[in-house]
Design a protein around this nucleic acid. Structure first.
Lengths: 193, 193
DNA sequence: GTCATTTCTTGTCTTATGACAAGATTTTTT
DNA sequence: AAAAAATCTTGTCATAAGACAAGAAATGAC
């Protein structure tokens, strides 16, 4: 069972028993992704989600003016998912791409539903997980309002420092809501202190 | 049953039968709120949510520097809820206050759980609802990045025009991520065209 | 109806960030 | 290894929005 350590950490929840974990873990399928590959592309309907064990990914949308805007970075221990597309069965507006080679564990929507309907503690885990995601998404819009670009950069540096070694500046900049030029200047300013 | 029209609209979902609606509606309790009253205050743990039938409300958080930042406006047909506090049982950082006198239908967390566990289509409705909320929250942070303050103002004007008659400028401005001074100038500029 | 408070507008000046462009550096391709 | 492409930095100038302050207008309290 030790091969499932990463998955178990993601699904860690008080009510889940060992037998539940066995069932949950064995529903996941190991997937190897190469740098640059896509887990999801604009226009598709997501049919699964992925638990990220190793590597880094990013999600981005194309803005009205045609620029890529990074909407999320994923690091090990994150669930890579496009909730709207998976749960509402609508075509996604996001692209999810590997920044490095990655190991993931895939769970199909039908297997998810099966677990969600039959394991009570999994249902609770799901609601809890969703509440946490919603909370951090709200925090993100709040941060866009209350924090300066510099503060947002420093926060990302604290939370996902690995990202800054692997994602090009413009991806990070669009995630922070600024241009790559500005981010370059912010970095210069910070390192000068 | 016609007194429950507002609630039924909120819970409209293919799989729900008439008997389900009866059970759901009768779990809600009518609540009258006066302008200025709070449904939730910072530090409390939410024990219920509210379906808004008539009136307007806003949610706000206090930023690190001590300013009120409006995080949401609610109009009839919306569910007034603080997901993180209700589902994770943690003290909220938000305040929810009535902008006008309001009619709501209250559902306690325990009644919600009872419905969620026993009516299959209600579980699905809940997941769908949550996915939609998460989607619109993500849209909001994207909009903070890709749209100008003027565009964001025009979007709010389109989506919740009533709000602009009842909420003071500074509440609207902080929701848009700008100062009331700037919003005043944006309005002047727009009306001059 | 008057006074006090809150809300809104406007002016001036400052600041953060953007737009555009050029050059330097790094990475990828062949 | 050389060429091409992508990435990053820096310069100059433009612009959106903020800070602060003063006054006008609207709202609420007595």
């Amino acid at each position: 069972m030790s091969e499932f350590t990463a998955i178990r950490k993601i699904y860690n929840y008080p009510g889940l028993k060992t037998s539940d974990y066995e069932r949950i873990c064995s529903s996941h399928e190991k997937v190897i992704i190469s740098k640059g590959d896509f887990l999801l592309r604009e226009g598709q309907i997501a049919n699964e989600y992925f638990c990220l064990e190793e590597g880094l990914m990013r999600a981005y949308a194309n803005s009205y003016e045609g620029n890529e805007v990074t909407t999320a970075f994923f690091s090990p221990g994150d669930i890579i998912i496009e909730v709207a597309s998976l749960f509402l069965r609508i075509p996604t507006k996001e692209n999810i791409q590997a920044l490095t080679d990655c190991n993931c564990w895939k769970l199909s929507f039908s297997d998810f539903q099966e677990l969600f309907q039959n394991i009570n503690a999994f249902t609770e885990w799901g609601r809890t997980w969703m509440a946490r995601v919603l909370f951090s998404t709200k925090q993100r819009s709040l941060s866009m309002i209350t924090d300066s670009a510099t503060d947002r950069y420093l926060a990302l540096l604290r939370e996902k420092p690995e990202i800054l070694h692997y994602a090009p500046l413009k991806h990070v900049a669009s995630y922070l809501g600024i241009t790559d030029t500005s981010l370059s200047r912010i970095r210069k300013y910070i390192s000068s202190k």
